[in-house]
Design a protein around this nucleic acid. Structure first.
Lengths: 143, 143
DNA sequence: TACTAATATGAGTGTATTTATCATATTTAA
DNA sequence: TTAAATATGATAAATACACTCATATTAGTA
């Protein structure tokens, strides 16, 4: 009942990229060093995010990585679902083939309620808003 | 981001017991057969629930298992926390020693919000209410 | 063309967790 | 003493996860 390491790494990398001016390329090695994430793993994660259409990658000299669209159109849910797959807190929410209690299971609807709330919260939070909240926090706590 | 098998088994067993008159003992073997759960695993799970004070066990001939308190005072959260441990959707919610971004992390509060909602939903659902909801469902769908 | 700097990708490894089994011990009623 | 039940610890099997490494691909540049 926890986010995976890869999920956390992906969010950190997306935060890093979202704080840059849109269109400016970054290097995976720099992100890894800055966010203290294993570089070889971050490469794989970035590959998934590129394939999913959240990032653009440019190979070769002067290559790098950028957001594929503006940070205010990318949500936490977008990133998490790429890395973790669709959120299913309980097997029986995937489909009736995984649970023979459907139709008379009261637990089902509880998980459904929790999951729906979770998804709603995560899809209402864009990386643009996260970045501006962090800037605010840093100003507040700066000495 | 999913409930474990053991967590599901525990909930099924608690549902079974909650549907019985309070104080009537049941046998683990019967619960396992009825709920289609591996018996040897259910034994271990029941051991945890006994140790946590949710169940009473009686050894020896005519022994068995009962709820330790009324089903309307046992919640989904109680059972899940015994089997899965405290719910922490994200490592950084456990404590600052697991996250060096605390103080300037906007993601933190999102997970906090999701987690708080989840806990609230789960602790507001007692096994007594689950049982009566299931009875209602079975009447509705009965032919 | 050859070199260099960057990402892309797939195979493989080690470890931790989960699931499950088995054997044995303990308890209690009859 | 026996039978019926739970308790427990050792262990195996399966799966998922975190991570590494080697190699391929691409594109700019001298």
């Amino acid at each position: 009942m926890k986010l995976s390491m890869s999920g956390e790494y992906a969010i950190l990398a997306m935060l890093y990229l979202s704080a840059k001016p849109f269109g400016e390329t970054s290097h995976i090695a720099d992100i890894a060093k800055d966010q203290k994430v294993p570089e070889s793993i971050l490469r794989k994660i970035m590959g998934h995010l590129v394939k999913a259409g959240l990032l653009h990658s440019y190979r070769g000299k002067n290559g790098g990585i950028t957001l594929a669209r503006a940070a205010d159109s990318i949500t936490l849910l977008d990133v998490i679902e790429v890395i973790e797959g669709k959120i299913f807190l309980n097997k029986c929410l995937i489909g009736s083939e995984f649970c023979d209690r459907i139709g008379s299971c009261a637990v089902h609807s509880v998980w459904r309620q929790v999951q729906d709330n979770m998804i709603e919260t995560l899809e209402n939070k864009t990386f643009a808003s996260l970045v501006s909240e962090e800037e605010l926090l840093q100003q507040t706590y700066a000495t």
